[in-house]
Simulated scan of single mutants.
Amino acid sequence: MIWLARRRADLAAGIGLLTRLPAGWLSTDAAGMDLGRSVWTWPLVGLALGAMGGLVLGGLASVGLDRHLAAAWAVALQILLTGGLHEDGLADTADGFGGGRDRERKLAIMRDSRIGSYGALALGMGLLIRVTAAAAAPHPAIAMTLAGGLGRAAMAGLSATMKPARQDGLAATLPGIPRPALAACLLIPLAAALLVLPVGRALQSCGAAALAAILLGRLARQQIGGLTGDVLGATAIGVECCILTLLSIAAAPA
């Protein structure tokens, strides 16, 4: 019973962190929630969000709506469900990295709730790529589902391998992620990819997600010396863009 209670608490923590969906009913023991231990649920939440978006895209397209417009509504649903959490992180990261002169100034800009030109451009390009690539994917439900799962797994991977850039905030609460939780977090989207894609394509997708996360992590280390919650959000969006683009290539004319 203790094992089950902890898993329910993990799921509540993961849903509560990554979405605006009510999750308190899953666990009544708020004190038993642990963000680090909950990382195994992050790709599950991402897979679910992606699947919902993919089903909306497919459903709207099946009744005659243009695929690009259907994809826009699908992404809009995902943003509604997450409260724009990752998009906000992407915009703040772009503003900080692009507008700050030094590490301290970059971190200060990233905490500013206002959006600047770099953030607006990054946000616009992120939305454009996601909508266009999802619309072009031959199997949008699969593409959006895997993109969501791999994006959240990439967040956990960076959290486990990078030090926080500041002593407060989300990233500072995550060091010390249990190895079993991290292993499950990475294996879940891999298993999902192998289930719905040919082996080569699945490994290619996971490799692309890992590469995108590594590059974003290296950029964050160069810019601000570590990880922040905003960088995690930017990583989720960046990986989603890469995976959706990769899985849309099959739709390109020969």
Rank of each mutant, 00 (worst) to 15 (best):
89 G>A: 05
25 W>N: 07
142 I>Q: 12
159 S>I: 03
25 W>C: 03
45 V>Y: 11
57 L>M: 11
135 A>T: 00
113 S>T: 10
171 A>D: 11
190 L>K: 03
173 T>I: 15
142 I>T: 13
136 A>S: 15
189 P>A: 00
98 G>Y: 06
119 G>E: 04
85 L>E: 09
115 I>S: 07
165 A>P: 09
89 G>H: 05
31 A>S: 15
4 L>Y: 10
204 Q>C: 10
35 L>K: 05
155 M>H: 08
129 I>P: 05
35 L>G: 04
209 A>T: 05
60 L>D: 09
96 G>D: 02
121 L>R: 03
145 T>I: 00
153 A>K: 00
227 L>K: 02
176 G>D: 12
109 I>E: 01
90 L>Q: 02
123 L>Y: 04
99 G>I: 10
12 A>V: 10
51 A>H: 05
214 I>Q: 13
206 C>N: 05
239 V>I: 07
17 L>H: 06
39 V>H: 01
42 W>R: 01
51 A>M: 13
174 L>I: 14
24 G>V: 06
73 W>K: 00
156 A>V: 09
33 M>N: 08
25 W>P: 10
105 R>L: 13
119 G>K: 01
134 A>E: 01
118 Y>P: 13
94 A>S: 10
115 I>P: 05
185 C>F: 00
30 A>W: 11
208 A>Y: 12
199 V>F: 08
170 L>F: 09
98 G>Q: 04
152 R>A: 02
129 I>V: 15
65 L>I: 15
82 T>W: 10
246 L>A: 02
234 A>M: 11
229 G>Y: 00
137 A>H: 03
128 L>A: 15
171 A>F: 07
162 M>E: 14
235 T>Q: 01
71 A>H: 02
121 L>H: 03
74 A>W: 02
138 P>F: 03
210 A>T: 13
202 A>K: 05
243 I>N: 08
186 L>E: 13
77 L>E: 06
205 S>H: 01
70 A>N: 07
14 G>Y: 07
73 W>Q: 06
254 A>W: 10
216 L>G: 09
134 A>K: 06
26 L>K: 08
56 V>S: 05
229 G>A: 00
20 R>I: 01
12 A>L: 11
106 K>D: 12
67 R>H: 13
198 P>M: 11
43 P>K: 01
69 L>H: 05
83 G>T: 09
184 A>W: 13
155 M>Y: 08
182 L>Q: 00
162 M>I: 12
5 A>L: 13
114 R>A: 15
116 G>M: 07
78 Q>N: 11
184 A>V: 12
120 A>F: 10
119 G>V: 03
201 R>E: 15
160 A>S: 13
221 R>V: 14
227 L>I: 02
120 A>M: 14
47 L>F: 01
16 G>S: 02
103 R>E: 14
222 Q>L: 14
40 W>I: 00
143 A>R: 00
191 A>W: 08
21 L>P: 06
8 R>V: 03
112 D>R: 06
212 A>W: 06
5 A>W: 08
36 G>P: 13
84 G>C: 02
132 T>M: 12
99 G>E: 12
222 Q>M: 13
248 S>D: 14
5 A>Y: 08
102 D>R: 01
83 G>P: 00
169 G>Y: 04
212 A>C: 15
192 A>W: 11
90 L>Y: 04
62 S>W: 14
245 T>K: 08
169 G>A: 01
54 G>L: 02
211 L>H: 03
126 G>A: 04
54 G>N: 11
206 C>Y: 08
28 T>G: 14
